[in-house]
């Protein structure tokens, strides 16, 4: 489903961010990405949703190759991905519903399908009653739920989450993580970058640890507990 083959990303100004990474992520998998700051987690995820293209090597996501994809192909691919960030990235002047509907409108969803889809995902993330609230009227955890709802509304095959709990307290973190697990249980793959080792330790999910751009540990290959955890 997602195959990364000898992918290397070199930024002209800062040098090598991802160094010869090869990975395969299957349908419906849940994968943690961890490692120290600057390890290349964000860069690797960006290559998956093709915000960045590898300098060498290939990233292939559901048939779309980083080598051959045109801008139009990337747009089409992203309609089948869900992406969330640490900073939510909601539009302040739109309500929760309108933020979710925005993703449908700008991708040409017929107007009559928008409202039912929005209310379905709002319920799924547990915000059925808060559709008309503006982001500033919601807690951090609730804002992240809106962002996740927006990511889910096009029925993605994978949800890419770059430190989705980075701005949240423990309770909200657990809530968001539970939501991601529920989503994964419904068949959607999840790729989640996080610094939260507590969270990882309590799970049996596949964990990929990166350092200086390279994969230094992958439970899918080694089994057992991740090695270097001294952060």
């Amino acid at each position: 489903m997602i195959r990364i083959t000898h992918a290397t990303k070199v930024y002209p100004r800062t040098g090598t961010a991802v160094d010869d990474v090869s990975l395969h992520i299957g349908k419906g998998e849940f994968v943690f990405f961890t490692g120290p700051s600057g390890a290349g987690k964000t860069t690797l995820l960006k290559m998956v949703y093709m915000e960045e293209r590898p300098t060498s090597g290939e990233v292939k996501v559901s048939g779309t190759s980083s080598i051959t994809a045109r801008d139009r192909d990337v747009a089409q691919l992203r309609r089948r991905l869900g992406i969330v960030f640490q900073d939510f990235r909601l539009l302040e002047n739109r309500t929760a519903e309108q933020n979710i509907a925005f993703a449908l409108e700008v991708t040409g969803t017929p107007a009559n399908l928008v409202a039912p889809k929005v209310s379905r995902v709002l319920t799924q993330v547990g915000l059925a009653g808060k559709g008309t609230a503006f982001p500033r009227e919601l807690s951090g955890g609730e804002q992240q739920r809106v962002a996740i709802a927006r990511a889910l509304v096009n029925d993605p095959f994978v949800l890419i989450a770059d430190e989705p709990t980075g701005n949240l307290d423990d309770r909200a973190t657990r809530g968001i993580f539970q939501l991601l697990r529920d989503i994964n249980a419904g068949g959607t793959a999840v790729m989640m970058a996080t610094h939260n080792l507590e969270l990882i330790r309590r799970q049996e999910f596949r964990t990929i640890e990166m350092n200086r751009g390279a994969v230094v540990f992958d439970t899918a290959e080694n089994g057992g507990a991740p090695a270097a955890r001294a952060e």
């Binding site: 747009a75 992203r78 309609r79 089948r80 990235r89």
Partner: peptide, 16 residues
Amino acid sequence: AREIAIMRLVGATDAY
């Protein structure tokens, strides 16, 4: 800029 970045993220085409 913010709005456009989100449009890109959710798969709006450049033409749009």
